[in-house]
């Protein structure tokens, strides 16, 4: 079993894992970081989105060994202590979540959007969210939350 090292939410982690371990399994099962969810088996729902070296990826479609040496951020690593990231705060303020299951992936994806496009239009936001499925909100308030976070983060 190969030994694997990476930085997760700012902390260096070294573990032995089988090569057929997905990154999401590594996070959930080996590290008990259960904020990252699995909602499908065809890489479409986006509940598992995390950042690897600053970019959003689907951790269900990446082997843990492929993240060797990478800098990984999960939903657990987004807030600064008790202070929510502006995206998290905006989701709360604008009721961008209901059951909360898609939320971690949705937030991580939205954070990456603003890294690429700090002032996205509603259409751009909706298109960016192609890889994140929410069954509760109808996306209306998610879009509002992302717009609000964008405006907050540009200030």
């Amino acid at each position: 079993m190969p030994s694997l090292s990476m930085t997760i939410n700012g902390k260096q982690v070294t573990k032995d894992v089988d090569p057929n371990t997905l990154l999401v399994q590594f996070l959930r099962e080996n590290l008990s970081l259960t904020g990252t969810h699995v909602g499908c088996d065809t890489s479409q729902c986006g509940a598992c989105v995390v950042h690897v070296n600053g970019k959003s990826v689907k951790s269900c479609t990446m082997l843990a060994v492929q993240a060797e040496g990478s800098d990984v951020t999960t939903i657990e690593g987004l807030a600064q202590g008790d202070e929510l990231h502006p995206m998290q705060a905006a989701f709360r303020e604008h009721h961008g979540l209901q059951c909360g299951f898609c939320t971690p992936g949705m937030v991580m994806s939205a954070v990456d959007l603003l890294q690429n496009n700090p002032d996205p239009s509603e259409t751009e936001i909706r298109e960016w969210l192609e890889g994140n499925i929410c069954r509760c909100t109808g996306y209306h308030n998610i879009v509002k939350a992302i717009q609000a976070a964008a405006s907050e983060m540009r200030r």
Partner: peptide, 8 residues
Amino acid sequence: FLTGKGRY
């Protein structure tokens, strides 16, 4: 839910 602390 927003901080990954939901317990499903």
